[in-house]
């Protein structure tokens, strides 16, 4: 196994573990105020210090990990499963259905993903559900595009024609020969998308359009830390580092997957 995959998986283990534990237990209650202990630097009692309301930063990071990762996982699952269905249909039916779907997809792709998410949040309202829906919809066009182009390129392979010659139905060929061979590029994309969503969610929360305080996410913790960065730098360092680690992990794992699924390597 390659080094980048190992590092990526270790980070996933670390953050995923924190998120899982954070769902059940945190050292302190993440929203418990302690006005006597505001902006305390890291110490033995509070490993990562406390914030402007005296809340334990580590506990909030763990709870934030639960929220951020849950949002990202749900979003990716929704966007990828919807995108796979639409992309498969579009790539296999062709004709006017395909052209119509592609016109809408192209129009939506003319907006940067994050901007589309921003607009959708305005419509759907901020908060967990709003973010998940907005981000799923915002990244859906990209998924459709990738699935469709994967389907179109696999369709050209001779083994798909061979399946036709054998007498298999279109649907059978689609699900047994085309879809499984599209999973490689789709899984690479889903991995990078996980990173995009983590980043977009934290950016939206940072702008105040995401999950509302006091419930912690990495993005809104970073945003709340901004006025204090002169006095309490640890408040900014910790959540930012978590976001960066999550992105690093998705990039490393994405690279490893891409290397593994590289068609030239399969052929060689």
């Amino acid at each position: 196994m390659k080094l980048n995959l190992i590092i990526g998986l270790l980070i996933v283990l670390l953050l995923g573990g924190a998120a899982l534990i954070g769902a059940a237990w945190t050292p302190y209650h993440p929203m418990q105020l302690d006005m006597l202990n505001r902006l305390a630097p890291p110490s033995f009692g509070h490993w990562l210090g406390t914030d402007e309301f005296g809340r334990d930063v580590l506990s909030r990071l763990m709870a934030g990990a639960t929220t951020s990762i849950a949002i990202a996982v749900t979003t990716v699952l929704m966007a990828v499963s919807a995108g796979m269905i639409i992309g498969l249909v579009s790539g296999s039916v062709r004709g006017w259905t395909d052209r119509g779907l592609m016109a809408v997809t192209d129009a939506l792709l003319a907006f940067p993903g994050i901007l589309l998410a921003l607009a959708l949040i305005v419509i759907l309202g901020a908060g967990r559900t709003g973010i998940i829906l907005a981000l799923s919809l915002a990244y859906l066009p990209a998924v459709i595009r990738i699935v469709r182009s994967a389907v179109l390129s696999i369709r050209e392979k001779e083994y798909v024609e061979a399946s036709q010659v054998i007498g298999n139905s279109q649907a059978y060929t689609m699900f047994v020969h085309i879809l499984p061979n599209c999973l490689a590029p789709i899984s690479v994309m889903a991995t990078s998308m996980f990173g995009w969503v983590i980043l977009a969610e934290s950016a939206l929360s940072f702008l105040g359009l995401g999950v509302a305080p006091p419930a912690p996410t990495w993005g809104n913790m970073l945003s709340a830390s901004q006025p204090y960065f002169e006095r309490a730098l640890w408040l900014s360092l910790a959540p930012g580092a978590c976001i960066a680690l999550a992105l690093l992990a998705t990039n490393l794992i994405g690279d490893a997957l891409r290397d593994r699924f590289d068609p030239r390597r399969l052929q060689a």
Partner: peptide, 15 residues
């Protein structure tokens, strides 16, 4: 390069 592209812009800006 991989490290750089993993850093969120708002955090890098803050740092």
């Amino acid at each position: 390069a991989t490290l750089l592209l993993s850093i969120p812009s708002f955090w890098l800006g803050l740092l």
